[in-house]
Design a protein around this nucleic acid. Structure first.
Length: 791
RNA sequence: GCCGGUGUGGCGGAAUUGGUAGACGCACUCGACUCAAAAUCGAGCGGGAAACCGUAGGGGUUCGAGUCCCCUCACCGGCACCA
């Protein structure tokens, strides 16, 4: 049928995908904006002869379903499926070419079974592991969160300040792929997405240096090993495990008080206190590995347990934070990098750290080397020879915390045997189905714990009694590989059928920028693991990614019910029809930009489409007789065709609509010209009708049928540009005098320089400015410009 | 602070490779049609009386700059005590 994808070896495949929605119950105008332009693009690709796979599904697990279900006293499954049903109807009114035969919801056991399968495979490969550690905890949603889900210290979903807790949780080892995730050479993504991911991964190149302490050797990470001789104290994060052992009895009370206070702070409070340094002396000293000097060891919350080793060597002369700390607590400041030609630093009067490059001083054998990046490699090499340092690259990226203490998600397919510990559920026992009748009020405990019957399992190793893991997976697991599932959505042998692997990767992926880090980073990671498992040969899931902008309310604010600025697409469709809404959304702004909704602006596309209809089916309108010639008409049609094709290629949808409007203006004139009714006129109507099809599919189809077309306009080939018709023999070019436009001349496109310049000089408006002046230079760029330089 | 992006009429925006800035539309003005209005159709619409001036501001390269280079400013987004 029209909207169903079938393998076709005679055609080139094109896999186009728009991020699937959460089944909230309603498609809002933002969904339309996100889906309509990619749909037009996919339709255009199909008309060009590509075999286009354009599927859609629902990202159905997650907290909102659970919270809404609690609020309305429904089961999340019931709530979700009725929402999906309603949204399907809305999607269909939108007029997309989505192949619904491949649709699925991620809460289908037939789908999440493969989440579980992947999890057990990750587990077997050491890429899924359970660890006790400091985690982000949302006290409102009563669950742990991944680092990526904490925004400004708050829960990404509900905005509650996140707390820190020590809990045993499951992680996926995304850090194994940190370096590879920095390489974007196999994917075409917007700069800002690449920049955001790169920042998030946070690579730092430097060295690890080990100091002896009374509690054993302590390794610190630094990006400035060239400042090692300037280290005058060490600082440990309050949560650092060595803190108790390093605290002397005299300091015990002060340290304990400080550490406890730091532990109580949420990230939000910590950020509010930013700037004012706090800390406390442990009473112990570390030994400088080169000089043997005794360096006091402090505890301070400006050092983070979650980065590097949780401890630092403080170089107050060359690090602003260390400088502030040293000033406040009267610690030694020792200069080891000096700006070129500067006097030695006076530690008493210095008012800031010098973080720039310069020359190394007061550092024995390193004296005279350039400071900063220039000599880091040399410094590390020599320190390695001395046995005190080791080159080290650190990433800010943490492993992905995937377990959640909520109900509406994929059960983690692990059982715990008293004898054999954590064991993956064997493949033939998957899926581990989510039990249906569970009290799932958020209590901080996993709701699945309440179903004792469900928890009962057997150990796959010994067959003895075992207990199921009661956590569910982060929903970002679902979306990390769903693009593969569309290839064979009901396959019960594999996550996807390898026979269809040639459809990969997704050629064009579109969606919101809000997923720049979370979903996109996770799915890139997942693809790399799948590649290493031999499931795909691709390095990247998406060959090309584009982000649409956001449609704001009329008041230039984010649309929300509480602001009362929400635009309802269903209302618009009732008033104007889907094609008008589609074309307006494409026309309103560059698609990647978005912007505020202009309620009067929709009049433009509405009028345009009725003019288009009139063009085909109204009587020849009254009005002045026009003189559009056949040559001019064909020129307009074929140049527009060329432009529209190019604009689809670069996804410039607003200029596609503009070009079609412009051509409509010409066609309206042509209808009142002698060219009306000629073969050129009929050709124009035919080509225009096909160009309309991707952007306004309903009207284009009606026009096609009314004109007696067979099958569907959407199955017609995209017209070929007649290059000869799209070219002009003569061209109107501007004539400049000293770079200012003074007139224009119509000349042959290939006119020789003498001819062109003669025509230019003869132009009366030009002559006014050249008269009595000496010609210095004459520029003629055929087809573009003439510039006469005089003085 | 670091990283990325964006600055063009009253508004949304166009100018794809350095070559006639303001396409296309909204709003507005005038005209036709109408008793009238709406709809529709036609015309106009950066500023200035003009010379000229105009793409955030200043400099530069060039015959020629919205476009390239340097500096500055503003706004948006991301990260941020990351050693």
């Amino acid at each position: 049928g029209l909207y169903t994808f079938h393998e076709d070896p005679t055609k080139t495949k094109h896999y186009a995908l728009t991020m699937f929605p959460y089944p909230s119950g309603n498609l809002h105008i933002g969904h339309w904006y996100a889906n309509v332009a990619p749909d037009a693009h996919a339709r255009w690709m199909r008309m060009r002869g590509y075999n286009v796979l354009f599927p859609m599904g629902f990202d159905a697990f997650g907290l909102p379903a659970e919270n809404a279900a609690i609020k309305h006293g429904l089961n999340p499954a019931t709530w979700t499926s009725s929402n999906i049903e309603h949204m399907l109807g809305q999607f269909k009114r939108m007029g997309t070419m989505i192949d619904w035969s491949r649709s699925f919801a991620t809460c289908d056991p037939e789908y999440y079974r493969w989440n579980q399968w992947f999890f057990t495979e990750f587990f077997k490969r050491g890429l899924a592991y359970k660890k006790n550690g400091l985690v982000n905890w949302c006290p409102k949603d009563q669950t742990v969160l991944a680092n990526e889900q904490v925004v400004d210290g708050r829960c990404e979903r509900c905005g509650t300040p996140v707390e820190r807790r020590h809990l045993s949780q499951w992680y996926l080892k995304i850090t194994d792929y940190a370096e590879e995730l920095l390489d974007f050479s196999d994917t075409d993504m917007p700069e800002r997405v690449k920049a955001m991911q790169t920042n998030w991964i946070g690579k730092s190149v430097g060295a690890e240096i080990t100091f002896d302490t009374p509690a054993g050797p302590e390794t610190v990470f630094t990006t400035r090993p060239d400042t090692l001789m300037g280290a005058t104290f060490l600082v440990l994060a309050p949560e650092h495990p060595k803190v108790p052992a390093l605290t002397t009895p005299e300091q015990a009370e002060a340290v304990q008080t400080y550490v406890e206070a730091a532990g109580r702070k949420t990230d939000v409070e910590r950020q509010q206190d930013l700037g004012e340094k706090t800390g406390v002396f442990t009473g112990s000293y570390a030994t400088h590995p080169v000089t043997g000097h005794q360096l006091p060891i402090w505890v301070a919350d400006y050092v983070l347990m979650t980065y590097g080793t949780g401890s630092i060597m403080a170089v107050p002369a060359h690090d602003e934070r260390d400088f502030d700390f040293a000033r406040k607590f009267g610690l030694e400041i020792r200069e080891v990098i000096r700006p070129e030609g500067a006097m030695p630093l006076n530690p008493e009067t210095a008012d800031a750290a010098y973080t720039g490059e310069g020359v190394i001083v007061n550092s024995g054998e390193f004296d005279g080397l350039p400071g900063g990046k220039a000599s880091i490699a040399t410094v590390i090499e020599r320190l390695e020879a001395l046995g005190v340092a080791k080159a080290k690259t650190t990433y800010r990226l943490r492993d992905w915390l995937v377990s959640r203490q909520r109900y509406w998600g994929t059960p983690i397919p692990i059982v715990y045997c008293p004898e054999h510990g954590a064991q993956p559920v064997p493949e033939d026992q998957l899926p581990v189905k989510l039990p249906e009748n569970v009290e799932f009020m958020p209590t901080g405990q996993s709701p699945l714990k309440l179903d004792r019957e469900w928890m009962r399992a057997t150990c796959p190793v010994c067959g003895g009694p075992a207990e199921r893991d009661t956590d569910t997976m982060d929903t970002f697991v679902d979306s990390s590989w769903y693009m593969y599932r569309y290839l064979s959505p009901h396959d019960d042998q594999h996550p996807f059928d390898p026979a269809h692997a040639h459809l990969l990767p997704v050629d064009l992926y579109t969606g919101g920028i809000e997923h720049a880090i979370l979903h996109l980073l996770y799915s890139r990671f997942w693809t790399k693991v799948m590649r290493d498992m031999g499931l795909t040969v691709q390095n990247e899931p998406f060959a090309r990614l584009r982000n649409q902008g956001i449609i704001l309310g009329e008041d230039n604010e984010k649309m929300s019910k509480s602001r009362g600025n929400v635009v309802d697409p269903d209302d618009l469709v009732r008033e104007y029809g889907a094609d008008t809404v589609r074309t307006y959304l494409m026309f309103i702004a560059p698609w990647e930009l978005g912007g505020p909704w202009d309620p009067s602006g929709i009049n433009g596309p509405a009028k345009w489409l009725s003019r288009v209809w009139a063009l085909y089916f109204d009587e020849k309108a009254a009005g002045p007789e026009e003189g559009v010639t056949e040559r001019e008409l064909r020129y307009a049609v074929h140049t527009t065709l060329k432009k529209v094709g190019g604009d689809f290629e670069r996804m410039s949808f607003n200029t596609i609509i503009a070009a079609l409007m412009e051509l409509t203006n010409t066609l309206v004139k042509a209808k009142r010209s002698p060219v009306f009714g000629t073969p050129a006129w009929e050709e124009a109507l035919d080509i225009f009708g096909r160009m309309l099809a991707p952007v306004a599919p309903y009207i284009a189809e009606e026009i096609w049928r009314e004109r007696g077309g067979t099958k569907s306009v959407h199955l017609q080939p995209w017209p070929e540009v007649d290059e000869a018709a799209a070219t002009r023999d003569t061209v109107t070019i501007g004539v400049q005098v000293n770079g200012r436009v003074r007139g224009e001349v119509e000349i042959s496109k290939t006119a020789a320089a003498e001819e062109a310049l003669a025509a230019a000089r003869a132009h009366p408006d030009v002559a006014k400015f050249t008269e009595g002046k000496q010609t210095v230079k004459e520029i003629y760029v055929p087809g573009r410009i003439i510039n006469l330089v005089v003085k």
